[in-house]
Simulated scan of single mutants.
Amino acid sequence: MEAAMPDLPRKKVGIVACSGEEIAEGTVTRLAALRVLEQLRPGDTVTICLPLFLAGGEGDRAFARFYPTIAVDGCGERCAARATERYSGKPAAEVVVTELAAGCGLAGLHGRRRLNEAGQRAVDLTAGRVAELVDELLERKGWDRRRGSFEAEPPAEAPAAPVAATCSCGAGIPVQKVVIDGRTVTLIGLPLIFEQLREAGKAPSDHLARELLETVRIYNPIPADEDETYAMTLLREYAAFWGGKEPAR
């Protein structure tokens, strides 16, 4: 039986911008991302802080695993794209400033702190391209977390959101820490999964342990040789949730 998937907050697109400060193209990525977040697509995007993402920021990594992201890199090193793929999943789209500029015949980008005219033009081009990609991603029916691809049909229009840049840390994707075989593990979406099962009237049982495991596996990597340990831990945590008390540690 296929595991049911809990309802999640309204889909947005995460923007992961390069944090490099050694070249002008790094400045271009940050200014372009800010323009998309605050001016071009404020209600449809959130920022994902790359340094916090690399340091293990739970909110940023959780968002990037649930929703499509656009990596905006300054050069061919593709630090933002590689970090996203390593810690959450392959970005839904990528923009590389050096490639975009070269394709438009734009050269001579200078100014790490204050961009020259070519650099400002690169900001315009990059922001415009990112906004186009946001539109393409949100016109699809949905980001399939299992396949890493999109469904075909467009979604219903969502209500307008306030015009302000927002961070993925506040995107509303819940996580929960549990102790598994002596290790503290952060599981994405676990509170929503528990709520869905309780609303369905499914009481804790040995039979439910397998369903819990398969549902949690949709959003979290589980080592193949630890299925039994995870299943029993999840059942223990759910039993505590069902009974409205803290589980024994």
Score class of each variant (00 low, 15 high):
P51T: 01
G57Y: 03
D60L: 07
I15R: 08
R35I: 03
F53G: 08
A32R: 12
E22Q: 15
F53S: 06
I15M: 14
R65V: 02
A17M: 02
G26D: 09
E21N: 06
A62V: 05
A93F: 13
T27Y: 00
S88N: 01
T45E: 06
Q39K: 14
L37K: 14
T69A: 09
V46F: 01
C79M: 05
G20N: 13
I23S: 05
P91G: 01
G59Q: 11
A55Q: 10
G20W: 00
R82E: 10
E85F: 04
A64C: 12
G26H: 08
I70L: 03
A80L: 06
A64D: 11
A92W: 07
E22G: 07
C75S: 04
V16K: 03
C75I: 04
G89T: 12
R65M: 14
G89I: 13
G43A: 09
R35M: 08
G89N: 15
R61G: 13
R78E: 12
G43E: 08
T47C: 10
E58Q: 11
G20T: 06
C18R: 03
G74K: 03
I15T: 07
S19Q: 12
C49L: 01
G43F: 10
I48C: 05
L50K: 04
E21R: 06
G74N: 09
D44G: 00
S19W: 03
Y87C: 00
L37Y: 12
Q39W: 02
A17G: 11
T84H: 00
L34Y: 12
G89V: 13
E38G: 04
C75P: 08
E38R: 15
T27G: 15
P42Y: 02
Y67C: 06
R35W: 04
A92Y: 05
A55Y: 04
G57Q: 03
F53K: 10
V36I: 10
Y87M: 11
G57P: 09
T27Q: 14
E22K: 13
A92Q: 05
G89M: 14
V28T: 09
V36G: 10
T45Q: 09
P68H: 01
S88K: 02
A81C: 08
I70R: 01
C18D: 04
E25V: 13
A64V: 03
T27H: 11
C75N: 09
I70Q: 06
A81F: 03
E85L: 01
R30K: 15
P91S: 03
A83C: 08
P91D: 02
P51W: 00
R86W: 08
T84S: 12
Q39T: 14
E94S: 14
